[in-house]
Design a protein around this nucleic acid. Structure first.
Length: 491
RNA sequence: GUGCCCGUGGCGCAACGGUAGCGCAAAGGACUUUUAAUCCUUAGGUUGUGGGUUCGAAUCCCACCGGGCACACCA
């Protein structure tokens, strides 16, 4: 910003600074302290009939001021609700009334007065006394059109929250979603645990990690890309039902569906398998949707989506056949690569059948999966932590539920054979050697844990942000993150 | 990272080659039941930054900064 640019806003601030000074001179502290409220604005509105005629003390931010000589109307906003303040000179006295002159839109005030209805029927508080709790020195965005500039909305989310009521609702829904997930799991006797966020080896997912450095230990640490390998160590340790709800960090591109840090819940249950986890998943989604939206049928961007269990189970190879007509059953890698090429899907020269199917699925099938469906039977090459299917060792007992074409979660029967796991890691290391920076790293410490014996278990990871997007009909992940990642910028 | 689009007073918008206008907010005034209050008056912008083309640039061109979307990347 140029200096000229700041002169104007400084003029507006100067006016308010002057009011602040005059308030102080008049003995009105511009930044009050404790204010004992009898009700929130929402409570007054909800219990208006019983409260009418009684005195209340409410507090909040002034959103509008309509001065009309010896009477002034203001709208007080608190908790997303608004009530009108009705100020009359002969109710509050000349001195207090005159001092209203120094109030501005945006100021936070506490008032005392009688609950009443104006002649036009507007629910109001007729103010007898008021105090200033915080003087606002900067102007609020426009009262009617709100704040539209997306960049400002993200960078100054507090303004967005003050002036755009729907935004507040989204974050309340987010909070309810997280609370519902936690309740669903703890009600089923899952133990909530916290595992390290700083990892010596970033494992549990295919992703590029953020690297940081520990001074005292003189070592690099990675921000976790998944808690998976630590949670499985807990299965070894005898915690049969655990979950962790928290942040993962991936050093990758940003999009409407990706933020560098995002919230995930991972769940593990011993002596279960992928089938059980699919049931748990659909039950959890239905429960959360019910808790947050009141039902299991929701509308996302004009699509009606029915989350009511059970959801269809569809092996990946069948999904590919259904949506592309390509049947990869019993094909050789050469044949498979040729089939993909004919559909315009590029695959590496040495791609296995499984890799080809996965690629075709990603390119041509995902977008069709609007209603909830579990895609199952993932190729072993792309599932290094999942158990093989007994009757088809090239496939794993893994699933991903798709909704709106997005991967909403990922789950599988956990691989608990340490010998097979070591071979899978070695395969991943080969991929790394070929330049795949997202391939898994060898984790000897994790293998040692497996060698002690991990009970068979089902595991599940859910992308919480995408779930919130779905439940709040938000088109971008930034709409459900209070402070989405932004490039640094000078004020 | 690539492509397309966007950046005008605090906020929401207009002007799209002729030298910047409106609404809200702000300041002064009138008004004791308004509610996008109303009415009168006033102030506020070298149009993201830096170059260029032109007699003349908010407008056209280039670069940079910031943002959005799509693609890529990515569970």
């Amino acid at each position: 910003m140029t200096e000229e640019h700041t002169v104007d806003i400084n003029d507006l601030i100067a006016v308010r600074m002057d009011k602040r000074r005059r308030l102080m001179e008049a003995g009105v502290p511009p930044y009050g302290g404790r204010f004992e409220r009898t009700h929130t604005v929402g409570q007054v509105l909800e219990r208006f009939d019983e409260l009418e005629g009684t005195a209340v003390r409410v507090a909040g931010r002034l959103r509008t001021i309509r001065r009309q000589g010896r009477v002034t109307f203001m709208d007080l906003q608190d908790g997303g609700r608004r009530i009108q303040l009705f100020c009359r000179i002969n109710t509050m006295g000349e001195e207090a009334y005159q001092r209203l002159e120094w109030l501005d839109i945006g100021d936070i005030v506490g008032v005392e007065g009688l609950v009443m209805r104006t002649r036009r029927g507007e629910e109001s508080v007729e103010v007898s006394r008021w105090e200033l709790l915080a003087k606002s020195l900067r102007p609020l965005p426009e009262k009617w059109h709100g704040l539209k500039d997306v960049e400002l909305r993200y960078r100054q989310r507090y303004l967005d929250l003050i002036v755009n009521p729907h935004v507040r609702d989204v974050f309340v829904a987010r909070s309810k979603t997280i609370a519902a997930i936690r309740r669903f799991l703890t009600d089923r006797d899952f133990l909530e645990v916290e595992t390290p966020v700083l990892h010596p080896i970033a494992g549990g997912a295919n992703a590029r990690p953020f690297v940081t450095y520990h001074n005292a230990l003189d070592m690099n640490l990675y921000m976790r890309i998944a808690p998976e390998l630590y949670l499985k160590r807990l299965l070894v340790g005898g915690f049969d039902k655990v979950f962790e709800l928290g942040r993962n960090f991936r050093n990758e591109g940003i999009s409407t569906r990706h933020n560098p840090e995002y919230t995930m819940v991972e769940v593990y249950e011993a002596y279960k398998d992928a089938r059980d986890m699919m049931e748990l998943t659909e039950q959890l989604f239905a429960y959360v949707a019910e808790q947050v939206t009141g039902g299991t049928k929701i509308v996302y961007q004009g699509h009606e989506i029915d989350l009511t269990p059970p959801w269809e189970r569809l092996p990946m190879i069948e999904a590919v056949r259904r949506y592309t007509g390509l049947d990869f059953h019993g094909k050789t890698p050469e044949e498979a690569r040729k089939m993909a090429a004919e559909k315009g899907v590029e695959v590496p020269q040495d791609a296995s059948v499984g890799a080809v199917v996965a690629e075709v699925f990603d390119e041509l099938v995902e977008d069709h999966l609007i209603q909830p469906v579990f895609i199952t039977d993932y190729p072993v090459e792309i599932s290094p932590l999942a158990k093989r299917k007994d009757d088809a060792p090239h496939l794993t007992d893994r699933f991903e539920p798709y909704i709106m074409g997005w991967e909403m979660a990922n789950g599988f029967s956990e691989l608990n054979d340490p010998v097979d796991q070591r071979e899978r890691f070695e395969r991943q290391m080969e991929q790394r050697a070929k330049g795949d920076e997202e391939a898994h790293m060898m984790d000897e410490d994790f293998l040692r844990a497996l060698e002690h014996g991990m009970p068979p278990a089902g595991g599940l990871g859910i992308g919480v942000d995408r779930l919130v997007m779905l439940l709040t009909d938000s088109p971008s992940i930034r709409d459900v993150l209070l402070f989405p990642h932004m490039r640094a910028r000078e004020l």
